[in-house]
């Protein structure tokens, strides 16, 4: 069942740059979908259009079963420095008018899910880059949205932290069953995480091809070093190279 679909979405910015030209994408209910493309291919713009943060110049976003709640994770942790981890995670609930006691309980719960139990009263400046990103993910998940949009969330992290967050994100996804649209420019990350990869081409941005990654879950560190993973990465790299040549 489809959760959301982009239909021929185009975006021309005020400065005349054509970021997207007829991009189409189907996102299935409960799916983990990666959007893979070179920088400047408009993948972040597509994500913002799906989120409703940017209006498309042409085309439409369809929600077959009605628009759902969604969570958004930016490339930067985007935390409020004047609020504790708990305050940051509770923000969506606060803006939604949830009473203090309930929102703090739910925010503490969400922090626990991303492995930050005990860090409720820590200030963002006291957290490492990886921990800040965990807070950001907890904030996106605190409203229990059906769709999680992630815009290159781990691109600025070191490799060790990135691998750990990949594994933890997958575990959360398997346990909770939300839908993920994960924008990345890393072939390795997209193959490791997703069930399906949409490959985008740049100038103008459009979805050129799709790759199914039917390796079973749970995917562990062993999958990352398997021949199967290497073969899939090779295939995805070839598709990306084709997209960049197109």
């Amino acid at each position: 069942m489809r959760l959301v679909a982009a239909r021929g979405v185009s975006k021309v910015f005020a400065n005349g740059v054509r970021a997207l030209d007829g991009a189409s994408l189907d996102v299935g209910q409960g799916e983990f979908l990666s959007v893979l493309g070179p920088s400047g291919c408009g993948k972040s713009t597509l994500l913002r259009i799906v989120a409703g943060l940017t209006p498309p110049s042409a085309g439409a976003i369809e929600w077959p079963a009605g628009k759902t709640d969604l969570g958004f994770v930016f490339q930067e942790p985007t935390l409020m420095p004047w609020a504790t981890a708990l305050g940051n995670v509770a923000l969506p609930l606060r803006l939604g008018g949830v009473a203090r006691g309930e929102r703090e309980a739910r925010a503490a719960d969400a922090l626990g899910h991303v492995g930050l139990a005990g860090f409720e009263h820590t200030w963002p400046r006291e957290l490492s880059g990886g921990m800040k990103m965990r807070v950001s993910i907890a904030r996106a998940l605190v409203t229990a949205p059906r769709l999680l949009l992630m815009d290159e969330p781990f691109a600025a992290l070191d490799e060790i932290t990135r691998h750990r967050l990949n594994a933890d994100l997958l575990a959360l996804w398997e346990r909770t069953g939300f839908t993920v649209v994960f924008v990345t420019h890393s072939v390795f990350e997209s193959v490791f995480l997703s069930q399906r990869i949409a490959v985008m081409a740049a100038r103008p941005g459009r979805v050129l091809s799709e790759i199914a990654v039917d390796a079973p879950y749970p995917r562990t560190a062993a999958f990352r070093t398997s021949a199967d993973y290497a073969a899939r990465c090779r295939l995805a790299s070839a598709q990306l190279a084709e997209a960049m040549a197109a």
Binding site: R48, A51, G52, L53, L70, F72, F74, E76, T78, M80, L91, P92, L95, G96
Partner: peptide
């Protein structure tokens, strides 16, 4: 931070 502004917009503030 314009991303924080986007976040507030997303949650209908």
């Amino acid at each position: 931070d314009h991303n924080l502004l986007a976040l507030f917009e997303l949650y209908g503030a």
